[in-house]
Structures are given as C-alpha cells and as structure tokens.
Design a protein around this nucleic acid. Sequence first.
DNA 1: CATGAATGAGAGTTCATTCAT
DNA 2: GATGAATGAACTCTCATTCAT
Lengths: 219, 219, 219, 219
Amino acid sequence: METSPTAATIAGERVPDARALRADALAQARRGLILDAARTAFFELGLEGASMREIARRAGYTPGAIYSYFASKEEVYAALLGESLLRLNAHVAAAPDDGNAADRVRSKAGAFFDFYSDNPRDLDLGFYLFQGVRPLGLTRDLDAQLNAQLRAALQPAADALAEFGLDAASAEVEITALFAQMVGLLLLIHTGRIRIFRQQAPQLLRRYLDQLTERLQRR
Amino acid sequence: METSPTAATIAGERVPDARALRADALAQARRGLILDAARTAFFELGLEGASMREIARRAGYTPGAIYSYFASKEEVYAALLGESLLRLNAHVAAAPDDGNAADRVRSKAGAFFDFYSDNPRDLDLGFYLFQGVRPLGLTRDLDAQLNAQLRAALQPAADALAEFGLDAASAEVEITALFAQMVGLLLLIHTGRIRIFRQQAPQLLRRYLDQLTERLQRR
Amino acid sequence: METSPTAATIAGERVPDARALRADALAQARRGLILDAARTAFFELGLEGASMREIARRAGYTPGAIYSYFASKEEVYAALLGESLLRLNAHVAAAPDDGNAADRVRSKAGAFFDFYSDNPRDLDLGFYLFQGVRPLGLTRDLDAQLNAQLRAALQPAADALAEFGLDAASAEVEITALFAQMVGLLLLIHTGRIRIFRQQAPQLLRRYLDQLTERLQRR
Amino acid sequence: METSPTAATIAGERVPDARALRADALAQARRGLILDAARTAFFELGLEGASMREIARRAGYTPGAIYSYFASKEEVYAALLGESLLRLNAHVAAAPDDGNAADRVRSKAGAFFDFYSDNPRDLDLGFYLFQGVRPLGLTRDLDAQLNAQLRAALQPAADALAEFGLDAASAEVEITALFAQMVGLLLLIHTGRIRIFRQQAPQLLRRYLDQLTERLQRR
DNA sequence: CATGAATGAGAGTTCATTCAT
DNA sequence: GATGAATGAACTCTCATTCAT
C-alpha cells in the first residue's frame, strides 16, 4: 500500500494533513473571488454580458482557470444563486419579529418581497436557473438544495401564519398563495408591465397581506 | 388606350387585380408557414435553439429567404407573440359568460389561466418579449400594441368584476392583483417550483377567485 | 424563309420596324431611369450602400428587373461612370476659352479640377472602376471608350498648351504631368490628407499652372 | 516565503521572468504570422477577397483565433498599413544622402516614389485606409499615428528642400506639391491609365524634380 | 493550479444573382 | 419586360469549452 506524501489514512478514510487543509482553504477562497467577479459582472452586464471571459477577466484569471473551480457556466450561476438565496435568508431573518402574528407576517413577507424588489438582478438570477426552458446542468442534489434555501426564506412568514391556529395543510396553502402573489407582483414590476394597470406593487402587497390576516382572524 | 392585362385603373387609383390578390395571399400564407416553423422550433428547442437557421430549415428555406418576410429575428418573435395573444384572446372570448357576475369572473379568469397553463410555451413566449432583461428590437408602437392585446385578454374578467359595483379605480386594483396571482401561479407551475409547496395551482386559483367574489359580495 | 411579324429584312440586314423602334426607345428611357436611381443611390449612400436592391427600389423596380438592362452591377457602375465623364466634358467645354493661351490653360484645367473637387462622388466613381485591384467585368471596348472620354476632357487644356509652340510629344508630357498633379491634389483633398501639410489644394493648382505657363513662355 | 517558479518580485513590482518573456515573444511572432497571411491574402486577392476567414485559413487558424490577436478586421488592416509605412520609412532612410541638396531631393523623393511604384499593393493598402469613402473603425490616435508615419517618410526630402534656403512655409508648399505629383503619378501607373498618355512615370518624376531644383536654385 | 492558445460551432445578417411564372 | 421568390455563399464576430504546457 502506498502512502501519499501529503495525506494519511485512518480506517480506510483519507485524513487530510495540514498542507491539504491549507490548499483546500485557499481553493475555497479563490472560488469566492471568482464568484465575486461573476456577481459584479452579472449585476453590471446582465446575463448576456456576463460571459466566462468577462468573469475570468474580472477575477484576474484566464478563462481556462475558472474550470478548475466550476465545471461549467451553469455551475457558476448555480453558485451565484445559492449565494443570493443566502443573502435573501439573511435579509428575512433581519426583519423585526416583534408585535403580533399579523405584524410578523407583514414584516417577514415584506422583507422577502423587498429583497427582490430592491435587487432586481437577484430576481433575474432566480428566474434564470428556475426556468424550465433551458436544460440546466444542475445535479438533483444541487437543485434540491437551492429549493430548500428558497423554502427556508418563506419559513418565517409561514411560522407567523401558523400562529393564527392554522393546521399544517392550510398553512401550506396560504404560504403558497402568498408566494405566488409576490412572485407575480415582482414579475410585473420587473418587466415594467405593472404600468399597464397603473398600480404600484408595494401597495398591492400590503393590501393582500391585510386581507389575508383579516380573513385569518375572522376564522 | 392600352389596358394592362394584370391591373385596372379606377379614378387614377391602381386597383389590384386577381393576380395581385392571389400573390398577396400566397405571400401571407408563406409568412404563416415560416411562423409555424418558428413556433415549433421555439416550442421544441426553446429560445437558444430557435435560431434563424433552424427556423429556415424547418420552413424549407435558406436562411436569407426569411428576411423577405421578417426584417429581423426580433420581428419573428414579435409576430409569434402577437399570434399567441390572438389565440389567448380567442380562448378567453370563447369561455362561457352566462351565470352571475361571480360565475363570469371565474369563467373568464379561468380561461386566461388555463390557456397558459395548458400551453406553457406560450408563457415562455410572453416572458421572452415581456422581459426587461434583453434589449428588444421592438418599436414602441409594436410594444404598445402587444401590451394592448394582453390587457384586452383581461378585460372580460375586469368587466365581470365591474358588475359588483366597483368604481373604476377599485376594479383596476382587483384586476391587477388577480393578474399578479395568476402570473405567479403560472410561473410556479412552469418552473416546477409548486412542488416545493405540494400544492396544485388550479385549486389555488379557484380558492383565490372564491375569496375575491365573496369579499366583493360582502361589501 | 420566315418573316418576323415585327421586322423586315433588306439585303440580309434586319430592318427594325416602327414597333421595334418604339420598344427600343422605351428601353433606353427605362435604362435612363435606372441610371438616375443608381446615381442618387450612389451619391447619397456611397459605394457600400448602393446595392442592386437599393437601386431597384429607387427606380421603382424589383431587383430582377435591373438585369434586363444591365448584365451586372459592374455594368451599372460603368454606365454611371460614362455619364459622369459626359458631365465632366460638358463642364470643361463650358469653361471660357477667351484670353491668351495661358488663360485658356488655366480655364480649362481649372474646370477639370473643379468638377471633381466640387463633386467628390464623381471622383469615387472614377476611382472605383479605374482601379486595377478588383476584377472589372468590363469589356475592352467599354474600357477603351471610357478612357477616350477621360482623355477628351483634358484635350481643351492640351490644345491650349499646344499654342505655346510645343511639339506633340512635349505637349503630351506636359498634359500628363498636369493630369498627375491634379489627380494627386484631388486625392489629397478627398482623403482629407491635405491637412497633414496644412495647404489648400486650389492655390496649389494655381501655383502649378503659373509655373507651367511661365516656364513655357520662357522657352 | 515561497518563490514562484515563474516570477520574481522586486519592490512589489512583478518582474517578468524568462518564461513570460518567451511567451510574449511567441505571441508577437504569431501575430506576425497572421499579419503575413493577411498581407499575402490582401496582395493576392485584394480587399474583397481578404476576408477574416481567408486570412485565418492562410495563417492555419480558425477564424475565431484571429480575434485573440486583433480586435477587428479594421485593426488587422491598420496593423498592415503601419507595417507598410515602416518599410516605406526604412526604404527612404536607406536611400543615399550624399551629394548636394538637389541630389538629396532626388534620392529621397525617388525612394519614396520607387517604394510604391515597386510595391503596388502597399499603395492599395495606403489607399484603403486613407480613403474617406468607407467608415474606418480606427481610433483617432491610431489614425494620427499613421498620418505621422506617412509624413515622416517625406521628411528627408523636405529637409533637403530646406537646404535651398526656403522658409518653413515655402518648404511646406513645395513638399505638398511634390507629394501630390508623386501620388498622381503612382495612381496613373497603378490604374494603367498612364498608357492613355503614352508616358512613363519615372521619367515624369525626374523631370518634375529637375524643374523643381532648378527653379529653387534660380531664386 | 493556471496559462495561453485554439477550437468549432454557430450566431444574425446581407447581397448579387437567377429563374419560373 | 417584369415580378417575386429564392438561392447560396459569404460576411464579421462571439462564445463555452478544451488541453498541452
């Protein structure tokens, strides 16, 4: 049996030594730098402009180097979306959760909505990979993980809804309807189509939430 | 005085004869065939795959020939979208408008929803051109016209809402909220995200409409 | 022996009848209309913009129709050049030929120069077809004829030079040198390169002509 | 402290090592090969024939590869012209500058003339980019630089003229007139039009220069 | 790990020209 | 003579990706 000069083996499991650990940490850091470059490229130039070349240029790499860290462009975008969902979750978590249940629904759902309303590129990102049109090069695992992150961002609002005494199934119905309403409004803002109806999205969301909480209280 | 074998003249105006009319009709027909090819290409291959080359290939033409009928790729897509909106409007118009106001809202909004639910590629089409992301080569006129077609498809539902005695402004609010809800649900279906919440979109729409009409009746 | 219904034959030569003559005249007229369209297209849009399509469009024809009158695009341009040379000759002929020989040289050479100086597109035209680079689709005859037209435009100046008592050979030398000088200056104007030397072409031509006539008088 | 195997650092500045230098040199060499291919393509096929495809083919590349070395077709042509002007300047510099001022004018102007007379494709090149007809994609800087190179090639002749005691303005007039004469003669040779006048260009230039120097000496 | 070079496929578009009707 | 349709070849340029070094 051969022993790698940089790794030991315990009970058949490879045990990374210090050098390997450091290398790993460095690799993670460089991956992060590439993602930063990808994000700024995407945010400034949009989907069309953020080519692998451009991302590499901004990261200070040559195009080929990116492929040491990401297998494809899709994977870069998936990583970008993952990071976006992290920021979304952080934003929702930071929203105040004092007051009664109705206040909390408004606060948490509003935070979700505002995040995308204020950061339209994050919305683009979500649409890009969540769209069924294109054949996504994502693994099932990665897809499931991104789904879970998205669902998590709605959980605080779902929890607040649950406080109205809804059973699990009903809570799920409500959170889905709310999610659909928000997605619809965001899309209308995003595409500029809301002007057709001369309405403003934030008021419409508030109105929806008011009716929702009122209805739940009436039960 | 000589008479052209192919055209007559009345009061100085050229009057198209049978031959010209037939030629025109043929040209329209060929335009239609190209559009058919474009639609199937787009529906099967999506945005990326439906190149002018591919469209030409399917229509049995060389790439250059397409440009006798459409000035650019954007124009092909615009024509496709226009035709899609015509079908949408026809579908909505065909929905029964008997029963009371609540029935009519359900019928007309349901027809709108079902059209896109049953024809997801038409939804893609709508998103393609209605998306702010990419620089559309559409004229303002064309854009406005497409907008108007979209709005028209919602008008029957809006009319039914008006029968509840809503003033114009309130009706506009309601139709916008309804539109957002439908768009959101369609997107969730379309991207497969609705499974996250283990719900089914049609029920959710019916629920939304029930609450809406109930609320309006309570006023 | 068959007799054409529209032509008679005398001594083996076909004799056009009245109908054929009229058809010919019409064809010539239509050829002229196409040339007018070609000229305005070329003058407004330059070489790149004046496509056969564009010329046909301006002439009120479809592209294919042009080929009933001209065998190729080169031939259209050759005809355009022929017409341009006719205008050049007319312009030179119209220049005053009073005064002494020196005055006449100045007048006639000046007219030649001014024509091209004032009509840069005619210069383009000349360069286009007189250039050795591209394979011209011109017949030898046509080429020779265009050459003769160009030479004719210089003849008035050559005649004036001859009055100084030059022999034929010397006159030829002088007119060639003068032609070269004019062509050179026109090119410098045309390409904007004369600014490199901060000079103005017309003064330079006058200076050249003054030195020339002075030198000839000194003989 | 780790030392990269391929780069050293002095005072924080990256110092290119042997490997980087060699890579650079190779890149330059490949750029040169592409330029060679472009030149032969242009010389054999003229402007129309020397497409990027053809240039790539001759250089043994795929079309896309060219764009690693030149940003556009215009840039290829600009580089070609720049290199042509370098050769022109070298040729003029190599011309003997012994003898008196008149000899030197003849030598230096003759070298300029002969360069283009012997290399007609270089003349084409000059005309291509110096022509006002087509919209050149050159930056102002590049254009100015090429202008300067052209002017520099005339400077030796201008210097020789100055020795006749001309003031700056007069020297400028003379060099411009000389330049125009040369350009005109070159064009006549190039287009074959000089045969119209049955003259030979070199003799005409010599004659021009003789008259010029004689006139200056007479002052 | 990173480079630099190159691939290969493909994009949209334009054009002179041909030809059956 | 003229049309209208279509061809076919060409154009410049972009991109994700690969791979020897």
